[in-house]
Design a protein around this nucleic acid. Structure first.
Length: 507
RNA sequence: GACCGCGUAGCUCAGCCGGUAGAGCACCUGACUUUUAAUCAGGUGGUCGUGGGUUCGAAUCCCACCGCGGUCACCA
């Protein structure tokens, strides 16, 4: 090792065997062995870090180029680049980047020893003094460098990172290391959820948890996952919605407002807007109706946009979307009329089918009036709803848990909020008449028997709960993943989920 | 599920009118030594997704399968 002293910088002159040449993994293994042979722990327990990288960048932002300080710091992070034979190391921690300057003159023989075994990808600690190089880069002039975690895997290509979409999700850790945007999106998601929780707590709502494993399917229309509990010898559905349990808590008077932020599971296709498990907030507010909920959702989304972007206007792809309250409110039937010049309101099912056919919308021949209207809306209207809008007053036929409209018995007091053509929220004045609810359940059962796999099952205990008495209540749910997409300008739901559902690898 | 596209070194990508497989990054050796995607010289590294077919000869053409992506259909 003494030949090193001839050079002014710690050139890496390890005795790496020839067979390691060109094999990053083997070279790293050999360096790991080298560390152990030199009595250096490649995986120490702790490191006395004094600052995060960004803290130092902020604190010393006015330090002039070429200035040395006596300020002692200890930083730690992953080595992302090495220049001049390891004289300059770029390390990144969760906050950002800082350069470590390793010059022989300021390092002891022991301290230099570690440098021989450092590769890109290793996690190291550096203790020294703050300086800004003549070229203007804030650096830690190292007195000592500590191996904190020896990495045995080569990092992806440094300019391009990982591009294979599947590999990015399978090895999200590599994606996060290499891709600033991936980090940004998941951090924004976390921030967004924190804002939602605070907003709800400020409204006096309490957060609750209800079963993910449910013996009776309910609360939404979707195909479920089924699982089995051995000791009970009973099948359970992974929930498609928490709705019926949350309303039971309102019946119980646990709080006037309850909410849950958690996963739902739907056994359906995967697309850029759909992941089999997705996160929703669902909430119920006693003594409120759907008009109150519209205002609440506008407030919430506007608050999120302001805190994340500092503005209500956001960019999504080619669109500029303004989330500022108040949002437009239009009934579903009126919107269909706007876009098709056909008024479905006075029609019966047969007439509606005929009009849908004329519009070129294919509809299940067994569909009732409401289902036809819904199909036409989905085909002709939905994708146009770029700016935020509440689509209100859905057909009774498609809304088995909503209260009948106070001025039109064919409709219910329900709305769905759309942004960027996507359904973002679904809400209604809750049906709390137990007899009507029981009838609606029976209609669902009839649909189920007729082959509709998405129809609900009858939940007798839920009817009992309504018989005990649910106060007048407004309820809503909103897809967190989609909202996160809107807020981060991400166009695939998998970008906003750390570990999206993938086909398992074989073997 | 249907249609279209892609699968080449650890990573990012060329090569595809058939003729022995290339670059950059990473890795190894050396040079340089206040760099910023450091630079320079040399080197290692590939059953070209899998299986079959056509051909004297296939990464390249054909078929099947697997995997992934996109579009469409269903769904939040």
């Amino acid at each position: 090792m003494s030949q090193k002293s001839a050079s002014t910088t710690p050139a890496t002159q390890t005795a790496i065997p020839a067979e390691a040449s060109g094999n990053p993994r083997l070279a790293k293994e050999k360096k790991l062995e080298g560390l152990i042979a030199a009595g250096i722990d490649p995986y120490p327990h702790v490191f006395p870090r004094s600052h995060q990288a960004q803290e130092l960048q902020d604190t010393y932002k006015d330090l002039e180029a070429g200035v040395e300080t006596e300020d002692a710091v200890a930083v730690a992070g992953r080595v992302m680049a090495m220049r001049n034979n390891g004289m300059f190391l770029d390390i990144t921690d969760a906050s950002g980047k800082i350069q470590v300057f390793c010059h022989k003159d300021t390092m002891s023989e022991d301290a230099l020893k570690v440098l021989e075994f450092i590769d890109i990808g290793d996690i190291i600690g550096a203790e020294g003094t703050i300086r800004r190089t003549p070229r203007g880069e804030l650096s830690v002039r190292a007195k000592k460098v500590t191996m904190l975690t020896k990495s045995l895997q080569p990092l992806p290509e440094k300019h391009h990172g990982l591009t294979d979409v599947e590999q990015r999700y399978r090895q999200r850790y590599l994606d996060l290391i290499m891709n600033e945007d991936a980090r940004r999106v998941l951090r924004t998601r976390s921030q967004m959820i924190a804002i939602i929780r605070r907003f709800m707590h400020e409204k006096g709502a309490i957060e609750v948890e209800t079963p993910m494993m449910q013996p009776i399917l309910g609360g939404a229309s979707a195909r479920p996952f089924v699982t089995h509990h051995n000791a009970l010898d009973a099948d359970f559905f992974l929930r498609i919605a928490p709705e019926l349990y949350l309303k039971r808590l309102v019946v119980g008077g646990l709080a006037d407002s309850v909410f849950e932020i958690n996963r739902n599971f739907r056994n359906e296709g995967i697309s850029i807007k759909h992941n089999p498990e997705f996160t929703m907030i669902e909430a119920y507010h006693a003594y409120k109706d759907y008009n109150d909920i519209m205002t609440l959702i506008e407030d919430l989304v506007q608050t999120i946009a302001m805190e994340i972007h500092g503005a209500t206007q956001i960019t999504f792809g080619e669109h500029i979307i303004d989330l500022k309250s108040p949002w437009q409110r239009r009934s579903m039937v009126d919107l269909v009329k706007d876009y098709t010049h056909v008024d479905f309101m006075p029609m019966d099912a047969a007439q509606a089918h005929a009009e849908a056919k004329k519009l070129g919308v294919s509809v299940d021949p067994k569909a009732n009036w409401g289902q036809v209207v819904e199909a036409v809306f989905g085909e002709m209207v939905e994708h146009n709803l770029i700016q935020p809008i509440h689509v209100t007053d859905h057909p009774l036929d498609i809304s088995p848990l909503s209260k009948i409209h106070r001025s039109n018995p064919r409709l219910v007091e329900r709305f769905e909020s759309y942004i960027n053509g996507w359904e973002m929220a679904n809400a209604f004045t809750e049906l709390n008449d137990p007899k009507i609810q029981f009838e609606r359940f029976m209609e669902q059962v009839a649909q189920r028997d007729a082959g509709n796999e998405e129809a609900m099952m009858v939940d007798h205990d839920f009817v009992t709960a309504l018989e005990v008495g649910l106060p007048p209540t407004g309820g809503w749910g909103m897809g967190i993943d989609r909202l996160c997409m809107i807020m981060t300008d991400m166009h695939n739901i998998r970008e906003v989920i750390a570990f999206p559902t993938l086909k398992p690898l074989k073997d």
